[in-house]
Design a protein around this nucleic acid. Structure first.
Lengths: 242, 242
DNA sequence: GATTGTGAAAGTGTTCACAGCG
DNA sequence: CGCTGTGAACACTTTCACAATC
């Protein structure tokens, strides 16, 4: 990002110099490693809430309104957004549409992403039918399974191919993201295949920790784990009711 | 937890005095509010990994082995567990079965939990068929929907009742946990019903932030959000490849 | 020799509080 | 006047490093 060259007079106190030099003039893109995962995760929530606000006919909002609706402080909302630029208007707040555009750009969902699903079992089928993906710009274009009954059919309009054709099809369809919904024992093998085929991000629904090389990003969703988070609180609240 | 009364001689350096006074002599149960959510979330991962280790025939493990497999440091593993008691054996490590028992007790999954599902759409059906719940002690006993086609049938062996019977059925079946898999617009209403019917914990799959009263615990799972976490990293890695 | 449990140090993330701006 | 953006204070979390233990 060649920003370290000598800077003329006066510019010395610019904190976000790269905004000016970069050809993408509207959004500051810091090294993702320097952004806490929790911030990114909240960004998704802000986006979701802004979409609800727009649906309710609101034009603008404020850090305190956004925070209140999500259970965060106003300062947190502002600090989170400040990682990426200046999106607010002092005295006014944030214009919902503006902020939505900005957050989508940050999250990378200002364009469509082609997604493949591996594993058309119970969960896989549900993922194929889930409307929420399309709404956020994710296009589930193909699914894979080894079950000959399923291979060749279309489920929810999505073609099911044999797992053995994974590499070939992913390349042909230019797929960048994968979702793994196979049994735990098969998940690592499938993941290795996805990585070999050039996928750059994976969401894993199998209850195992998967190894991926540097440069491939990976998020795990474990349904039983979510329930355990709840039972912990419930069990301990019962044992310890203030 | 009346521990503040005068303590005789010698006991002054006991950190976990409550262990001795409590009638549950094996596990320290601190106020859940004092345990960071991140710790609890890792506890689930430790449990999962220990189960894999047992399946591989390992009798014992160590904080460094456990950490390495999950991408944490050994110190983190030890510190996390230290919140709840002394489960390890210096020089040896942790006995897998022992630690599994201890973590289940902490998470509250040392017993079965009766779970109800509301919303038998795509996702709901997948949840009904998901084996992972039973494996961790969650029993999905009943589902609710408003679709007359589904009401009265059994899906994956689970009875589907009409939503209007929610209160009655939950009480009768002594249900403690609910999973919400209805469209976003209906989620708050359904949640209010669950709470009114005495459910103490909820996992919400609708992309909205739900309000629940103090004392009801709530976890949200938003599938599009998970994908957004991945695209953020991918998009920014592409823009910023070190 | 290996490994835990834990204070102390280092590192991160959150909240406060207010200057500056519309 | 209301609200943002932000340095500084605070709180929390992780890592280090080592005495204690088997």
């Amino acid at each position: 990002m060649g920003v370290t060259r000598p800077v003329p007079l006066g510019s010395l106190h610019l904190t976000h110099l790269v905004v000016i030099l970069s050809d993408d003039s509207s959004t500051f893109r810091p090294n993702p490693n320097s952004i806490p995962g929790a911030v990114v995760s909240r960004l998704s929530l802000y986006l979701r809430e802004l979409q609800h606000l727009i649906a309710d006919g609101k034009e603008t909002t404020s850090s305190s309104q956004l925070g209140r609706r999500l259970g965060f402080t106003d300062a947190q909302v502002r600090k989170d957004l400040a990682h990426f630029g200046h999106f607010g208007h002092p005295g006014i707040g944030y214009r919902c549409d503006e902020l939505i555009t900005a957050i989508r750009k940050i999250l990378g969902t200002d364009r469509e992403w082609q997604v493949a699903l591996v594993g058309v079992g119970n969960l896989g089928r549900a993922l194929l039918g889930y409307r929420g993906f399309a709404q956020q710009g994710f296009r589930l274009v193909v699914a894979f399974d080894t079950d000959e009954e399923k291979v060749g059919t279309r489920i929810e309009g999505v073609e099911v191919c044999h797992l053995s054709r994974l590499g070939e099809v992913l390349l042909e369809k230019q797929i960048e993201l994968g979702m793994v919904a196979v049994p735990a024992v098969d998940a690592q093998e499938v993941t290795d295949e996805l990585v070999k085929s050039g996928v750059s991000g994976i969401v894993n629904f199998a209850p195992v920790t998967l190894k991926v090389p540097e440069g491939v990003s990976m998020v795990g969703v474990d349904l039983a784990r979510e329930l355990e988070q709840v039972t912990f609180t419930v069990a301990n609240k019962l044992a310890n009711p203030d």
